[in-house]
């Protein structure tokens, strides 16, 4: 690890100010950033911890919308009783990761195998930052890439509450991130299906499935669909064909369990 300066502001405004200096970086739970720094692959000059900011903590629900603070840990979401989202959070990593890692960090990092991006995209969530609100459909822009500007902080995330939802995660055996994960959310105005882990472009909506499911919300509705292996990730743990297969299998299971 290289040396760095550490700051722990107590308001979003202070954090934004602290992040203005060169090579400053926000620190959430550190579950992605710290391992990278230990491997000397990242060398921020300053770390601005977001864990002391009250505005970013806590969750609330209006019945129609669940709002999760950007600094809320996976463990707290898991314990929150928010259906498929809580189940998803409870299956992230191990207890250490869940007790430290935050939803803001996960969405900011946008790892192509991370779980939260699928939940946010399928739910049609709104990412609220210090500067603006970004619809999930506009937020995820590619592998490890988001609509966030430099020094922009995720303060909270609004999740519209679906009629029913389910997340199916097929674990990559070593890391136990999602080899493929599919989040299906059924709303009064339609079904949304988001896929993580599979595509070289990062999390995406499987719109053919959505169309089929809007017509007939059952696993059988997927029978006629085929998933192309083009642009699917290829690595030690799965070929593009394998991932394409999992997308379909897991979507069917998610619908069945909705």
């Amino acid at each position: 690890m290289y040396n760095f300066v550490f700051e722990k502001p107590t308001t979003v405004a202070e954090a934004v100010a602290a992040l203005a200096s060169e090579d400053a970086q926000a620190l959430g739970g550190g579950q992605t950033l710290l391992p990278t720094m230990k491997q000397r692959l990242a060398s921020p000059a300053k770390l601005v911890s977001l864990t002391g900011i009250a505005e970013m903590g806590g969750t609330s629900s209006t019945g129609d919308v669940i709002t999760i603070g950007g600094g809320v840990t996976h463990a707290d979401v898991a314990a929150g009783g928010y259906g498929a989202i809580s189940k998803l959070a409870g299956d992230i990593g191990d207890p250490t990761v869940r007790n430290r890692g935050t939803i803001g960090g996960s969405l900011a990092n946008n790892d192509p195998s991370a779980d939260y991006p699928a939940a946010a995209l399928a739910s049609g969530a709104t990412i609220k930052t210090n500067a603006r609100s970004i619809a999930a459909d506009d937020y995820f822009t590619g592998l490890f890439d988001t609509a966030l500007e430099d020094a922009e902080i995720i303060v909270s995330v609004d999740f519209p509450v679906p009629l029913s939802s389910n997340y199916q995660k097929f674990e990559q055996p070593a890391s136990r991130f999602a080899l493929v994960g599919v989040f299906v959310a059924k709303f009064a105005d339609g079904v949304r299906v988001a896929v993580t882990g599979a595509s070289e472009g990062g999390v995406y909506r499987w719109t053919e499935a959505e169309t089929a499911l809007n017509a007939n919300f059952s696993a059988d509705a997927l029978d006629g669909l085929s998933v192309s292996a083009d642009n699917m990730i290829s690595d030690l743990h799965g070929t593009p064909e394998y991932r394409a297969n999992l997308v379909k299998v897991l979507t069917g299971r998610a619908v069945a369990d909705c």
């Binding site: 070593a174 890391s175 690595d235 030690l236």
Partner: peptide, 23 residues
């Protein structure tokens, strides 16, 4: 069932951490 040490054709160790080497 799970363990596999894999080098690519350039001799780079693909399974060089617990993120890719399954214990």
């Amino acid at each position: 069932l799970v363990e596999n040490c894999v080098y690519d054709e350039n001799g780079q160790l693909l399974s060089g951490s617990y993120m890719d080497y399954t214990m």
